[in-house]
Nucleic acid binder design. Structure first.
Lengths: 223, 223
DNA sequence: CTCCAATCTTTGATCCATCAAAATTATCGA
DNA sequence: TCGATAATTTTGATGGATCAAAGATTGGAG
């Protein structure tokens, strides 16, 4: 059995590889994500490499092996199912379930996860719109455009928020404040490249402005 | 924050003190319960004593301090609420939730526990009939007679199974086989002191015989 | 091409939880 | 009361995860 620390490393590498496919994940990046010192990461990457879970090249970073990816997907599946369970069944708010899932993902049995999956009717995405790997660890790819993409191409199109690709409390607080939680209707009304901002309009004519960087983390689908 | 190991020790001591009030819990007993060597327990009891959680007297065993008892009750509350949640809300079987709760009790937040408590309508007992400490860590005492007590005093009285005071898989399997899960109707029909057994009758005239030791772990209330 | 700054690895140490085996203490039976 | 036996504690060691700080490597900027 992998320790809960090993699971955390694998999940972090998996998520980074997803953000930038094909590129090895840097030691320092992992250190930041996992809130440990770089030396700790180096040590851990070596033991992960010895266990055949990552390919590790000194000074070049790490990439998951097939086995490591399997394990990482397993953890990710648990994490996202738990998040959805906490929102749908327990009634917690979508913005507060991340930390809870972060701990529970290491403690739930396969049996309980299967039961949650069943109760939730084999869901495809979690409360943030991130895809939930299936029981066989397949990931159904999502193809949403971000608000930033939309600003560049299709001003004025009516959309629905499908995915928030940043789980940090600060970002979620912003999203909440602006009113952009998943499911909400939204329209990009203007793009100001010089100012690096985007104007959006939501329900009931409510308007807001968003930096392009933030807009790039909000994914939508046409309605 | 107490580590999950510390929580396990405190819970084990609490349960032992409950079984035999006033008596210090022996090192070896804890070693058995926690599946570690006696030397490990000695070391841990010292650090618990240093943290002011137990009173530890070499060769005499340990007793919880007020602080240790508080912490232990906290863990016990989490454990039992989780067990009930898994049975009532998630639909797992009462005989399989113990191990799951054993892991989850160290991972759930106060917020989630409060929410479970609310969903379950501030329950008084878990699926085994054990009392759930309240949010302020008060324990409502239960006063049920065991089947063994009943055999000695009141042959033939109709009762309802209220509590199974042994969570080990083997015992739960026996209880399931005989049909004595909490809530079932039961009547003691005979006591054979020489043979150390008890005859019982359940639903639809079904009969079974039980050792006195086992009968002592089944608690009932009159109907 | 060289050297500096940033990044990464190494080294030596700590803490927690654990074990095996040796040493100590208690206790019970004769 | 005296050992023998059972229970407990001590000792020395290990594995996992971590840190701080020293040393090595790399990739530009000039």
């Amino acid at each position: 059995m992998a320790t809960s620390t090993v699971e955390d490393y694998l999940k972090a590498i998996l998520l980074e590889e997803e953000r930038e496919p094909g590129v090895a994940v840097a030691t320092g990046r992992l250190a930041t994500l996992l809130a440990v010192t770089p030396g700790t990461v180096t040590a851990m990457l070596k033991t992960l490499a010895d266990s055949g879970l990552v390919a590790y090249e000194p000074y070049a970073g790490a990439q998951l092996t097939a086995a490591g990816r399997q394990l990482g997907l397993h953890v990710l599946r648990r994490h996202r199912l738990i998040e959805l369970f906490l929102v749908q069944i327990v009634g917690l708010d979508w913005s507060e379930v991340h930390d809870e899932a972060e701990r529970l993902e290491h403690a739930v049995s396969e049996r309980l996860i299967e039961r949650m999956d069943e109760m939730l009717d084999r869901p495809a995405v979690d409360p943030h719109g991130d895809p939930i790997p299936t029981a066989t660890l397949k990931v159904r790819p999502l193809a949403y455009a971000s608000l930033a993409d939309l600003g560049a191409a299709e001003i004025g199109v009516r959309c629905r928020v499908a995915r928030i690709a940043d789980q940090s409390p600060e970002f979620l607080r912003l999203v909440e404040k602006v009113g952009l939680r998943p499911g909400k209707k939204v329209r990009v009304t203007a793009l100001d490249v010089a100012a690096d901002t985007l104007e959006i309009e939501l329900d009931r004519g409510r308007r807001a402005s968003l930096g392009l960087r933030a807009a790039g983390k909000i994914f939508v689908e046409r309605v």
